[in-house]
Design a protein around this nucleic acid. Structure first.
Length: 234
DNA sequence: GGCCCGATCGTCT
DNA sequence: GACGATCGGGCCA
């Protein structure tokens, strides 16, 4: 028990220390990165960086550590299953690089990147990220206090809960369905890669929370960085 | 206009 | 591990 608390404290210290480390050199991903199947995009988004630059606010940066693929019309777990098409899901039918954010369970939001070509409504769900820069801004949005304060009040493990789930990361990044319909090339939200890319092992497994999709719940469309502490579930 | 349900999370046991 | 919160959207009448 005590050893575990120590591990969490070490992790918390590492997360806090990121603030003072320089950012790696980042290059924005081009549109054609997203003009591929959601499976390819979801896998390749692991290790990439989300950058949020709202006018008048400091930049927030985090690294993607867990994703899922939603394969459009044929996928019973997808919002567009069976070709469903409504004003809400219209952006999914647009070109790759769009941003689709929807309200789930009446309380939380899920961030999706539109994939593939127009009329093929595939998407990559971003399920977990790790904070890289702007930690206090994220903590303020999610917990209402600074990182140091939340560690003091609730313990170091709470800091892992900052962005280790789809609803949590939207809250930390201040994203909601009001931001749906933007795209990655003309808005405050970008995704970039680090060169040279960092090395990691990928785990491929079944998606979360899609039991009602029957057989499609068994598809191996969830991907995460092995051993990363911000992955939502093992 | 009404009804049902969810790509989740936090709290409690 | 179990459960309740909470509400917009999709679908049917």
């Amino acid at each position: 028990m005590k050893a575990k608390q120590g591990l969490y404290m070490d992790l918390a210290r590492d997360i806090l220390a990121r603030e003072v480390r320089p950012l790696p050199a980042l290059t924005q991903l081009p549109p054609d990165f997203y003009q591929r199947t959601a499976i390819e995009v979801a896998r390749d988004l692991l290790g990439k960086y989300c950058l949020i630059q709202r006018p008048g606010f400091p930049q927030t940066v985090c690294r993607i550590v867990e994703t899922e693929a939603y394969m459009g019309v044929a996928d019973k777990a997808a919002n567009t299953s069976g070709g469903r098409r409504t004003p809400r899901t219209e952006i999914l039918y647009g070109p790759g690089g769009g941003v689709f954010i929807y309200l789930t369970y009446g309380m939380y939001h899920c961030l999706n990147i539109v994939c593939n070509r127009p009329e093929i409504p595939e998407a990559a769900l971003i399920r977990a990220v790790e904070p890289v820069q702007g930690l206090d801004a994220m903590c303020l949005a999610r917990f209402g206090c600074t990182a140091v304060e939340i560690v003091e009040k609730k313990g170091p493990k709470t800091l892992l809960g900052l962005t280790n789930g789809p609803g949590k990361l939207c809250q930390a990044l201040g994203l909601s369905r009001k931001d749906s319909d933007i795209n990655l090339f003309n808005s405050f939200f970008h995704i970039a890669e680090e060169k040279p890319a960092s090395d990691f092992q990928m785990v491929e497994t079944t998606r979360i929370g899609v039991e009602s999709a029957g057989e499609d719940a068994l598809l191996p469309y969830r991907y995460y960085i092995a051993g990363n502490p911000f992955v939502s579930r093992l």
